[in-house]
Design a protein around this nucleic acid. Structure first.
Length: 914
DNA sequence: CCGTCCCGCCATCAA
DNA sequence: TTGATGGCGGGACGG
């Protein structure tokens, strides 16, 4: 192994050591000397000084909870991958003292250790390095304490160049697992925010139409091969693609804005952004398997898709490997190979937690607290929100408007300065306060959970996640029943707090955002509430596009899961490991089950939720009580994994036109009321947050209960325009509750409704969401609308279709605002069709994959998980090129379709793990 | 040979 | 100018 390197003395030095030299540099303190165990928690003041802290390398306390850390280490070691990788290296060290390491030895030691430490390339791999890095910190650090990371220290301890640490940290930052505090310093948040982050990313990804893009790319490929007429498609693709995401900015969570100055400047290329996009692709795609090739193409951009330099492509791929290695270490993805007709292609499969639609779920609470740190941040966050607005508004891109950019930049600069200041972050001890208690309690539980988690092994992880996490969360909750704690913790930031509280007040206490909103109404439990966004109306005008796209995040989110199933894509996973994909039960959560879940779940879900709510903890149980829903404790739901919803969303869309009409009326009324309410609630104080309107999410929650419709319509408002993503996030976090809530709202739709098609049918309730509409529309509508509304970007061409885009847009907007009825208007543009589903077929899974077109997919096998039938719907736009988005496929085999734009033939893919 | 990706040069920023 | 970041791609490793 080392031979080569090892042999050279220099090598070692170089690689490992190099850091030191640098580190030595005046700027940063140095590692060793310093001394403080940075890692951990350095809550202490000492650290604050930005730059480099102290760190002693000596021990590493890595985590506050030592035990845990050790555990982790062990676990990691245990895990196959890790093991394999690490095997040699670290083991020795690892176990115990992880950190320290080698380096020490290396220096003087020559011998064996030395050699060992150095090993081959593999040993130096980013993935391994990342494992080591992660081993230093607890997955779920206590909220009370803050854990800081000093890059220099870490680099030293891990014996790597700092450059490498940046790679890791950037990716972690993209997931909000760490937050940059100042130069050389990061705060460790662990996985607390992960769920929220993923939800957000999913939402954003959906907004960006990544799914479509993926399809387009695939389609294109096919076309090339087959020489299908791609032109038309391509054009469409291009336009859409370009429009869509051209570039988006880094997606920030409310409390987590990134501060790096440079970030903005280099944003597009930033590893962070790339990482987020990459993750989005997984979250959005049905099979949740993304090939590097596709990812690279999408990430490259938009503009140049066609140009595609090879070099560029190659570079992108390289970067993706870097990101993938880190994500793999986080066990969010796993490498597999997809075998298509063309051959085997490297790809990655999402193995992380499923993203719930809206539910934010679990962990949030504590987390939120965590974020909040300084006041300054709060402020910043607001600002950011504003920044985000644009982006959010536009779903297409997150790019900030130039004008905003400047503002933002200034703000950031200020912020940065502050932060950078030695004192910068001060931590937060503030956070600690309330939380401590709860945190403390929760900690214990968490530990247990974590331990279990680890023990079980990666494979199970997913499931466990569900279970455990929830549990832990629940516990936490219990300890602090109310979300409140967070808010309080937040207290530091007054503004936030206020915000939070309000929402909370409105909603059910529990942070559980979820359920509250939902109403029990239907038997199914699915009751739908209509949420209007106050702002919407107004906003709409402004941003219409965005919101159209945006629909509720939740809803979108949900979809993902459902899909998956193998069937859909016909992808087969061959994982060496196992069956996982196919069979794996555990996986099921993630992948497999979904399908089933969907079908079943719809009802079950409802039940679950309700239960959860009731019982708080008992997640698993399923009962049907709609009533429970009322209670609103939604947490449970989240935890559960709401299965697939994304697709479901679509399904949800199903409506019965007729009913729609009828209902529409009602809806309107309700909507109106809702909107009003919402506004009231929201607006007032929201200021804190930043933008009143946009923030709105909270509002949703409020109105929700009131609004419901018996009919069971769920109408989520799109959250407001705002944020599509970011904003929402921000809100959520800050508000903690708020976010949750609205998420919940959204989620409900997703989760609850969706599937329920059967239920709905039973009831005869049309389920029409605005959300759905939005979603459905979005592609089309967006295109159409964009020109008008946004002004920008979208190609009008797409919309052009029959009607005047503008008018159509307006209509949509109005509809949205006004409600569904408006939708009715739809006639003109989009038409919804209801398709009965065949029982099995329904799964559709992914709409995406199955598109009809040329290829048919074989029938899919999917299993019908449930006998229930689901309905599928299609949404069509009238004339637009893009016309349809199909929600589900049908048994017939007919496919219904898909977005106009994309017709993707599906191929079968085989996935194999390496 | 090729997929993967380590390594570190060097650009960009901020101070 | 210096230090911190991080884009980028040459070229090495390992299969």
């Amino acid at each position: 192994m080392q031979a080569a390197r090892g042999a050279e003395p220099g090598a070692d030095d170089k690689e490992n050591r190099p850091a030191e030299p640098r580190g030595a540099v005046p700027g940063t303190p140095l590692k060793q000397a310093a001394a403080s165990p940075s890692v951990l928690a350095e809550m202490q003041p000492g650290c604050q000084p930005l730059a480099t802290p102290p760190k002693p390398k000596e021990s590493l306390p890595a985590d506050p909870w030592t035990p845990t850390s050790n555990l982790k280490m062990l676990i990691s070691a245990a895990s196959p991958e890790i093991r394999s990788r690490e095997q040699r290296k670290e083991l020795s060290n690892a176990a115990g003292e992880v950190l320290q390491p080698k380096r020490c030895s290396q220096e003087h030691l020559s011998g064996d250790e030395y050699e060992k430490s150095q090993p081959s390339r593999k040993e130096k791999s980013l993935g391994l390095l990342c494992h080591k890095f992660l081993a230093r910190y607890p997955d779920y650090p206590s909220t009370a304490e803050n854990t800081y990371i000093c890059l220099d220290e870490v680099a030293e301890e891990l014996n790597v160049e700092r450059r490498r640490i940046y790679d890791i940290v950037n990716v972690l930052e993209s997931l909000h697992m760490v937050r940059r505090l100042a130069k050389n310093r990061y705060a460790w948040h662990g996985r607390h925010n992960l769920t929220k982050t993923l939800q957000t990313l999913k939402k954003v990804g959906e907004e960006n139409k990544y799914t479509q893009q993926i399809q387009m790319i695939k389609k294109r490929e096919y076309e090339h091969e087959f020489d299908l007429d791609g032109e038309r498609n391509e054009e469409m693709e291009r336009s859409s693609v370009s429009n869509e995401h051209s570039e988006m900015c880094f997606v920030e969570l409310p409390g987590m804005e990134f501060r790096a100055a440079s970030v903005n400047s280099r944003k597009d290329k930033s590893l962070r952004v790339m990482s987020q996009k990459f993750v989005m692709l997984f979250l959005v795609s049905t099979p949740q398997i993304v090939s590097l090739e596709v990812a690279a193409k999408i990430l490259i951009g938009e503009d140049q898709l066609e140009d595609l330099d090879k070099s560029k492509f190659k570079t992108k791929i390289r970067r993706l490997y870097d990101i993938a290695n880190v994500l793999s270490s986080l066990e969010l993805i796993k490498k597999v190979h997809v075998t298509e007709e063309r051959g085997r292609k490297p790809a990655f499969k999402w193995t992380g937690p499923e993203v719930l639609p809206s539910i934010q779920d679990t962990k949030l609470e504590p987390t939120s607290a965590t974020y909040i740190p300084h006041i300054s941040e709060c402020i910043a966050s607001r600002e950011q929100c504003s920044k985000n607005l644009f982006p959010s508004s536009i779903k297409q891109n997150f790019t900030r408007h130039p004008s905003l950019m400047k503002l933002v930049k200034n703000i950031e600069n200020d912020r940065r300065k502050i932060q950078s200041a030695p004192a910068s972050p001060v931590k937060i001890s503030t956070t600690g306060t309330d939380q401590n208690l709860s945190a403390y309690t929760s900690k214990m539980s968490q530990l247990a959970a974590i331990a279990q988690h680890h023990l079980e092994g990666p494979s199970k992880k997913a499931k466990e996640m569900k279970m455990k996490l929830p549990r832990s969360t629940l516990e936490n909750n219990l300890s602090s029943p109310e979300v409140a704690p967070k808010p309080e913790t937040h207290t530091a930031a007054p503004s936030q707090k206020s915000v939070l509280t309000q929402p909370l007040g409105v909603l059910p206490p529990s942070h559980s955002p979820v359920s509250p909103v939902i109403l029990p109404q239907n038997h199914s439990g699915v009751s739908y509430a209509i949420y209007l966004h106050p702002s919407q109306a107004h906003t709409v005008t402004t941003y219409s596009p965005s919101f159209m796209l945006q629909p509720l995040p939740c809803a979108n989110v949900t979809g993902i899961k459902s899909i998956n199933s193998k069937v859909l894509n016909e992808i087969t996973t061959e994982e060496g490991d196992n069956h996982i994909a196919a069979d794996d039960p555990r996986k099921s959560l993630t992948a497999k089950e979904r399908p089933d879940i969907q079908s079943e779940s719809s009802s079950q879900r409802c039940l679950k939720r309700s239960q959860a709510l009731q019982e708080n903890n008992s997640i698993k149980k399923y009962r049907s009580d709609e009533e429970s829903l009322d209670t609103s404790v939604g947490e449970s739901i989240k935890n559960e994994r709401p299965p697939s919803r994304g697709s479901q969303m679509n399904h949800e869309m199903d409506n019965f036109q007729e009913e729609k009409q009828n209902k529409s009326e009602t809806l309107d009324l309700s909507v109106a009321s809702c909107s009003d309410q919402c506004k009231r609630a929201d607006t007032p104080e929201d200021d804190n947050r930043t933008k009143p309107e946009q923030d709105i999410p909270v509002a949703f929650a409020i109105p929700a209960h009131e609004t419901f419709f018996p009919s069971g319509y769920l109408i989520p408002l799109t959250q407001c325009t705002h944020h599509g993503n970011k904003a929402s996030l921000s809100n959520g976090e800050k508000t903690g509750t708020c976010s949750l809530q609205h998420s919940s709202f959204s989620s409900p739709p997703a989760g609850v409704i969706p599937v329920t098609a059967s239920e709905l049918k039973a009831v005869n309730i049309p389920a029409f969401h605005i959300t759905s509409l939005n979603i459905m529309l979005s592609p089309t509508s967006i295109a159409a609308a964009a020109p008008v509304l946004s002004n920008s970007c979208l190609n009008s061409s797409n919309t052009s279709s029959a009607q005047n885009p503008n008018s159509s847009v307006l209509n949509f907007t109005l509809q949205h605002v006004g409600l569904i009825p408006a939708g009715m208007q739809v006639p003109a543009n989009p038409v919804l069709q209801h398709i009965p589903l065949s029982p099995k077929a329904e799964n559709s899974n992914h709409s995406s994959e199955n598109m009809n077109l040329q290829e048919e997919k074989p029938s899919v096998p999917k299993e019908p998980e449930e006998p229930q039938t689901t309905t599928e719907m299609f949404f069509r736009t009238p004339g637009g090129p893009n016309t349809v988005s199909s929600l589900s496929a049908n048994s017939d085999g007919t496919d219904r379709t898909s977005q106009g734009t994309l017709y993707i033939p599906q191929r079968k893919l085989e996935v194999s793990e390496d």
